[in-house]
Amino acid sequence: MGSVVKRLLREAGQTFAEEAGIPLKDQPGAVFKLLVLANLLSARISSEIAMEAARQLFGAGGGTARGLARLTWQQRVDALGRAHYVRYDESTASRLGDMAELVQEHYAGDLRRLPIKAERDRDRAAELLREFPGIGPTGVDIFCREAQAMWPWLRPYFDAQTLRGAERLGLPADPKKLADEVAEKDLARFAAALVRVARDKRLAETVLKG
């Protein structure tokens, strides 16, 4: 592992899920919480606010598909409001409720069924994820970047934003070559760190200067 990559992981190598308090484990609650986070992060709003919104929703009882569906629309709006997720709070509250209902209807509340339904095919998984309200191409990328920590069949998952971060650091822009820079278990952390670099020029400069 090169010195730039080591510094990158040291400076920014925490997944967004972990920062939001979501353990990246192949468990029903964790996978559902990651889907909620991907939905929240898809909006044009800061990642800090989105992660706090996730924490507020989970704290209110929305950490499972059943729990989120049982929250009233107003309870979801209030949770988002406490996180200052205010520009999109009403529409997002509706989408999250619909999403939770779909997870219950199509996956019996357990998103670990999604890889089986997708036959562990990344393109098919993306199609299934886009069926959820609020999950478009950006949401798919967010979910899969982080879910590769739990689901090896997604690895390596580097989307356009991670590759922009890699280019900023002078790292390979080819996904397979980029994956060779870290151990397989660190791919999700690596991808998250590259996203942060793509968004933050100062962070990139810090990593490059050492």
Rank of each mutant, 00 (worst) to 15 (best):
G134W: 00
L111A: 09
A160Q: 15
P152I: 03
A83D: 03
K201G: 15
F16R: 02
N39D: 07
T138F: 10
H106Y: 07
P152C: 01
G170W: 07
Q104P: 15
L154V: 02
D180I: 08
L194C: 11
L187R: 09
K201I: 09
A126I: 14
R44K: 14
R122I: 11
Q104K: 09
Q74T: 11
K176N: 13
V36C: 00
E184R: 03
R10G: 11
L208R: 03
L129T: 03
Q74G: 12
G136F: 06
V182N: 05
P156I: 14
F58H: 11
A12R: 15
V4Q: 10
A149I: 12
K25H: 13
D110G: 01
G62H: 03
K185G: 09
D180N: 09
S94F: 13
T64D: 07
A126H: 14
E101C: 11
A53K: 01
I45K: 04
A160R: 07
R55M: 05
K33A: 04
K6F: 01
Q148T: 03
H84N: 15
T162F: 10
L9I: 08
R130T: 06
R10M: 03
D26I: 10
D200F: 10
Q27C: 02
R155L: 14
L96S: 00
A173P: 12
F58Q: 04
K209W: 04
F158C: 03
A183I: 05
A38S: 05
R7Y: 04
V140M: 05
G59M: 06
D98W: 02
F143E: 04
H84M: 12
R76D: 01
F143N: 02
A204N: 11
R10K: 14
R155I: 08
A100C: 05
C144K: 11
E119L: 15
D78E: 14
E167D: 15
H84L: 13
L71F: 13
F16Y: 13
L8Q: 00
A108H: 11
G2I: 04
G139D: 04
V195E: 01
Q161T: 11
G61R: 06
V86W: 06
Q75N: 09
Y157M: 01
G2D: 15
S47M: 10
A53W: 11
P23H: 15
S46I: 01
E11V: 14
A65V: 05
E131S: 13
D121F: 06
R66T: 14
L171C: 09
R122Q: 10
K176S: 15
D26A: 14
A149P: 05
A108V: 07
V77S: 03
L194D: 03
A108S: 12
R44F: 02
